[in-house]
């Protein structure tokens, strides 16, 4: 029940040249999604699966093409604003649900910042919480102390995550979006400055010749050991370059810091020059946004569109052709998976977001 189905449906319904059979399929998929969302409770704040942020972004996409849904989107907005104003999250001994984009407040902040009907004051409880989490120079409050399920990423236990999905860069992207939506805010700027200094210190040169970031903070350990502890030396939307490079470039933009923007550009350019090596990933994962080509495509598109990086535009076009050649792999996958981040919906959303397409859905993954 994440935003994958309404986002794909809204992208095809929004295109003027979509045929009737596809429109009909999109309308039916949208109705099915609304029925499921209406019948199940949300389990967390984030953009992933049954999260409130993902549902709100899905409703925004749906209301964009079906104006009759605007009242439902308004109700979702009010509920999310009211809930974030009343709720509290841990500021020490944290778990993912206390801050991240996938399950926590950063996801909710991205969803509200993407909504043009939201008032700047509505963002305040979420921004205040995330700014508090950034108040130590070493960002110590982000150290994962809640017990993690040993099946998933146990190497994060008692460490500070440096990924977009679960880490400090994802929080920074949410704060950048909040700053864009609400105008100037000294507290957000100070928080982003501390995050930026920390991310500059965490950057390192990969042996393959590009600038990147570790999956968890190195803390005086050499990065090679850090990589060896983990399942893959992943470079994707979720970890390393390109994802963290985008967060660094965005922080540089909102802080008007040329040096930071240059670090983001150097990282992505060096990664593209190295041929985009992204570790050993399974075949289906290599398609998706989180770990695969669809994520790299939307990031290259963002670097081309917003940072004016011509090389990123060229790689985006190559990735489009590569994903298009693998479309037949999507159909059997679509029988069981409707997820945006790890599924075929994200691949389709990336391919459907050609020039002129509505780009609001990109907030779901910290882009624009």
């Amino acid at each position: 029940t994440d935003a994958g189905t309404p986002i794909v449906a809204s992208l095809v319904l929004d295109a003027a040249d979509t045929d009737e059979a596809t429109r009909s399929a999109a309308e039916r998929a949208l109705s099915a999604w609304l029925a499921v969302v209406g019948g199940t409770g949300a389990s967390h704040y984030g953009v992933f699966a049954e999260g409130l942020a993902g549902r709100h972004l899905g409703l925004l996409a749906a209301a964009h093409v079906r104006p009759g849904l605007r009242r439902l989107a308004a109700a979702s907005r009010r509920a999310l604003v009211r809930r974030t104003a009343l709720d509290t999250w841990r500021t020490s001994d944290v778990g993912w649900e206390d801050y991240d984009m996938i399950m926590g407040p950063a996801g909710a902040l991205l969803a509200l910042a993407a909504d043009p009907e939201v008032m700047p004051t509505d963002l305040a409880p979420l921004t205040a919480h995330l700014v508090t989490l950034c108040d130590r120079p070493e960002l110590e409050r982000f150290r994962l102390r809640q017990r993690l399920d040993e099946r998933y990423s146990p190497w994060n236990q008692d460490r500070i995550n440096v990924g977009v999905a679960h880490g400090v860069p994802g929080v920074a992207l949410a704060l950048c979006a909040a700053l864009d939506a609400s105008g100037d805010d000294a507290g957000i700027r100070a928080a982003l400055r501390r995050v930026a200094d920390w991310l500059v210190a965490e950057a390192y040169p990969d042996p393959l010749g590009f600038i990147t970031w570790p999956t968890v903070a190195r803390e005086n350990r050499p990065p090679a050991r850090d990589v060896a502890e983990q399942p893959t030396a992943r470079q994707a939307w979720c970890y390393g370059t390109p994802g963290v490079a985008w967060a660094v470039w965005e922080i540089g933009r909102v802080l008007d810091d040329d040096g930071l923007q240059q670090l983001g550009r150097t990282a992505i350019s060096s990664f593209l020059d190295a041929g985009c090596p992204n570790g050993n990933i399974a075949l289906r994962e290599s398609l998706a946004i989180c770990h695969g080509d669809a994520g790299l495509l939307v990031l290259c598109d963002a670097f081309h569109r917003h940072a004016g990086l011509a090389a990123a535009g060229a790689v985006r076009d190559l990735l489009y052709a590569r994903l298009r050649a693998r479309l037949t792999e999507l159909t059997p996958w679509s029988a069981t998976n409707y997820a945006l981040l790890n599924g075929p919906a994200g691949v389709l959303a990336a391919l459907l977001t050609r020039p002129g397409a509505d780009r609001t859905w990109l907030y779901t993954v910290g882009l624009r």
């Binding site: 059979a21 596809t22 039916r28 679509s334 389709l348 391919l351």
Partner: peptide, 18 residues
Amino acid sequence: TDPQVVAAARAHLMAAAA
């Protein structure tokens, strides 16, 4: 819009609607 991408999207949406 790319017809092959739209066809894949249609197949996905039909599965999501089923």
